[in-house]
């Protein structure tokens, strides 16, 4: 074997089967080894276990709104008066038109995620709905966007009525 071959064994155009296989297997291993680290940044099991919230509606008077926490986010629960219901049922002429019937399970109870769909600020309660202090989006009593920069209505969380006066927000596991 010549000296040149020792110093420069990789001749251009010469590919080795063994090198390719080893490279692929090692590459797969590196990806596999990365997964536990990536996965460790996902919610841990105790956080996942807390992904539902049970709320007692008994103490919310008619016409009153309450903010509860679910998955670290505010959820607005509004106990609507018949007038409020009548008003939101009247028109669907908003930026993101959806009839109120599709946004509630029971007409007197509105449950929405209290984060402005614009950039995630928490809107504050204002006479006929909510008003976002950050960039001035206005929502009605169905959580629908009326004006301002927000593109969409307030998001509806999954929830179910456990009893007449108790709801479970979020998906129940199992």
């Amino acid at each position: 074997m010549s000296d040149d071959e020792v110093k420069n064994p990789e001749k251009p155009g010469r590919r080795y089967f063994l090198e390719t296989v080893t490279g692929v297997v090692a590459g797969a291993g590196v990806c596999g080894a990365a997964w536990p680290f990536i996965s460790s940044m996902n919610p841990s099991t105790d956080v996942l276990a807390k992904s539902t919230a049970e709320v007692d509606l008994g103490d919310i008077a008619v016409g009153e709104a309450k903010t509860v926490e679910w998955q670290g986010k505010p959820v607005f629960i509004l106990h609507r008066t018949p007038e409020q219901i009548a008003e939101v049922r009247k028109s669907v002429d908003t930026k993101d038109p959806t009839p109120d019937e599709q946004r509630v399970q029971k007409p007197e109870w509105l449950v929405v995620v209290g984060l402005c769909t614009h950039l995630g600020c928490v809107p504050s309660r204002k006479d006929k709905g909510w008003f976002c202090p950050c960039h001035g989006s206005v929502y009605d009593n169905s959580g629908r966007i009326l004006s301002g920069p927000a593109p969409k209505n307030l998001i509806l969380p999954e929830y179910e009525f456990l009893t007449e006066n108790r709801i479970l927000i979020g998906k129940k596991e199992g």
Binding site: V6, P9, T22, V25
Partner: peptide, 18 residues
């Protein structure tokens, strides 16, 4: 498996020196 492949590769590459 990987170590065995590394071993084969090492042996192959070093055989050029013989």
């Amino acid at each position: 498996v990987l170590t065995f492949l590394f071993y084969l590769l090492k042996r192959k590459i070093w055989s050029r020196l013989d």
